[in-house]
Amino acid sequence: MIEEQGRVIALEPGVVWVETLRKSTCSGCAAKNGCGQGLMDRLGVRERRGTIRALSDLQLQVGDSVVVGIREDVLLRGAFLVYLLPLLMLFAAALL
């Protein structure tokens, strides 16, 4: 499971809005010049806050610290749908 620390900023019935702090990983990476994150780091977009809408049945309050998690298989399925499926469709269309 991939996890990220966050803070509750708003509540709705069955849903919480969580604010996370994005961190740069460019300090330890050897591919700084060929990476989009490295470009964003050079442009000054370093530590920006991200907002996530998460389902929750817990009794949380605004300001509570939480850990948001996503399963690896869900992440891989999403990456497949976003990146590989359009590429496969492009090749199929080219063959037709």
Results as ranks from 00 to 15, higher is better:
L81G: 05
E19D: 09
R48D: 09
I9R: 09
R22P: 01
L90F: 12
V67L: 10
Q37T: 07
R53S: 08
G50M: 10
D41F: 13
G38N: 08
L39M: 07
E3K: 14
L75G: 01
D73L: 09
V68Q: 01
G36T: 03
L85R: 15
G34C: 04
S24V: 04
T20L: 06
A79N: 09
V18H: 03
A79D: 04
K23H: 13
E72V: 14
V62L: 00
L85H: 12
L88M: 15
S56V: 04
E4L: 06
L90D: 06
A30V: 10
V82G: 06
L96H: 10
S27D: 11
L87P: 00
Q5W: 05
P86K: 13
L11T: 09
V66Y: 06
R71I: 00
D41T: 14
T51F: 10
S27Y: 04
R77G: 10
R7E: 12
A10W: 01
E19H: 02
A93S: 12
V16R: 02
R53V: 02
Y83T: 10
G14M: 04
A31T: 08
V82F: 13
Q59S: 12
E3C: 09
L58Y: 04
L58A: 10
G36R: 04
R77C: 03
R53K: 15
G63R: 02
R48Q: 11
M40H: 04
L96M: 13
M89V: 15
I2W: 01
A79F: 14
L75P: 02
V15N: 03
K32T: 11
D41H: 15
G63N: 04
Q59C: 01
G78W: 10
V15S: 03
L88A: 14
A94P: 02
R46C: 05
D57H: 03
G6L: 06
P86R: 10
R46K: 15
R42D: 15
V74R: 13
N33D: 15
A54M: 06
G28Y: 14
L60S: 03
A93H: 06
W17F: 11
G28N: 08
R46P: 00
E72M: 11
L85V: 15
N33Y: 05
S24D: 07
W17P: 00
P86N: 12
I70L: 13
M40W: 07
M89G: 11
D57G: 07
L39Y: 02
A93R: 14
Y83E: 09
C29Q: 11
D64M: 02
L87G: 13
